[in-house]
Design a binder for these strands. Structure first.
Lengths: 251, 251
DNA sequence: AAACCGATTTATGTATACTTAATTTGGCAA
DNA sequence: TTGCCAAATTAAGTATACATAAATCGGTTT
């Protein structure tokens, strides 16, 4: 192994993966740029075997794209891709919500979600909202979406949602942060929270169609707002992975 | 490299991946069974480096599951998982259809789909349908779904659909084959074809909501029929990857 | 001057030796 | 007899040497 471990107890593979991902998300490696194994080895100071694994994992994750002739390139995303990913997640979460409503979702299972909902209520009630409260909201909102996904009880659905959410710009947190700079930010939060309330209610009452519909509306709102936010990119410091963005605004 | 190549021009990694997948799908490796790198090396006569890559790829594909302590196990699927995967694909295809309707989908782009549709028409018109025609139908149906997916023009959506369809029991072909032994098989084909016709019409007329609705109905029908088919498994010789199935019937 | 062919270089694919970690087994002590 | 600790074995993680294929550069020929 190398002379000294900067981070003990973390595998070389993971270390390389993290380092490369950071460089991609921070824009040090630009979209479209080719990255060979050897470069990755130099960059990460990790030998070829774990580096290769890291590259494959990043390809799987969607941040890299394999080049037929060998090697990888940093994947580029259009604004359309980003918006579609949000809509995609919303559609999947809609399915999850419907499954949650139609199946199990016993009172006991629902408890954590309802707790999370009331926590969110507390946070969103403040106006203006403090920085700490907003930060807590981001975390709690992510938790809400994760709990909802799990409530579906469907492994294939959970898997797909996790995959989509893993995209740095498609996670619930990313969206909330991205739209936080809009003038009507607090209103958006309130409307979103209303959606949360309705979906929990619908699940509790076994109204699958309603649960699904509200999650999709939730996503449609997100897409609309994110499109607005993308118009004036000055507000977007908070959107992770803006470095991956390439093309011009859509519409 | 090894003494002699059984298949020239194919990489060891790919060879290992194919060999392992075959063994998983054929049931030689049983669900839940642990498979270590060394076993995989013995089985495939490929050295550790490409074998490991093959294992990672198969994990990504969803056929294997990484064990925290190291190694992999063959993933087991319940009937619920299979049915959910079909519904999942239908939901995603619904989104794809809506995107296709709402966006581009110019007359020129629609041409291949309409051609495919009329090919399917020809095939489904026969009653009773010949073995060759049925086989052609399976292929053409897969093509139809692929064309529809592509028409969405949304890379993230296409990617997810491809992932789900890659599951051996969730591909359009798998479904058609699985329900082919039901008594009402030909009727099911006719209804499915009606759905195909409607979705193309809806896309052509830019009716996004209708396009989406019919694809979801298409999937709901599929789930219903597949559930029936799963009841009497004697009919299921044609369902690929039945070897992955573990639990008892749902409901 | 341009095009093609060959040689050299560079990068990926593969095999394997080595290292570290985990699991299992055997022995000893309570 | 049982439980725990230590030693040994086995497997995963890593580094690297080797092989092969692709790409580039230079030279020669037309």
């Amino acid at each position: 192994m190398s002379e000294r471990d900067t981070e003990r107890s973390v595998s070389q593979t993971v270390r390389a993966q993290l380092a490369l991902r950071d460089m991609i998300l921070s824009g040090t490696l630009r979209p479209g740029e080719r990255i060979s194994e050897l470069q990755a080895v130099e960059i990460t100071s990790v030998s070829r075997t774990p580096v290769r694994l890291a590259l494959v994992r990043l390809e799987d994750e969607g941040l890299l794209q394999a080049i037929p002739s060998g090697g990888f390139m940093v994947k580029a995303f259009s604004e359309r891709d980003i918006l579609d990913s949000i809509e995609l997640r919303g559609t999947l979460e809609g399915l999850a919500a419907r499954f949650a409503a139609e199946r199990g979702a016993s009172a006991r299972n629902l408890e954590p979600l309802k707790e999370c909902l009331s926590d969110l209520d507390q946070l969103v009630r403040q106006d203006p909202i403090s920085v700490e409260a907003f930060s807590a909201y981001v975390t709690m909102n992510a938790r809400f979406h994760a709990l909802l996904t799990d409530l579906s009880g469907s492994a294939p659905v959970i898997r797909q949602i996790d995959r989509v959410s893993a995209m740095p710009f498609a996670s619930p947190s990313a969206f909330v942060m991205a739209q936080s700079a809009l003038p009507e930010a607090h209103n958006i939060l309130l409307i979103g929270q209303e959606h949360h309330r309705i979906v929990v209610d619908a699940i509790e009452n076994r109204e699958g169609a309603r649960a699904e519909a509200v999650m999709r509306e939730h996503a449609r709102l997100a897409v609309r707002n994110l499109r607005l936010a993308l118009r004036n990119r000055t507000h977007l410091d908070l959107l992770p992975a803006l470095a991956l963005l390439t093309s011009a605004p859509t519409d």
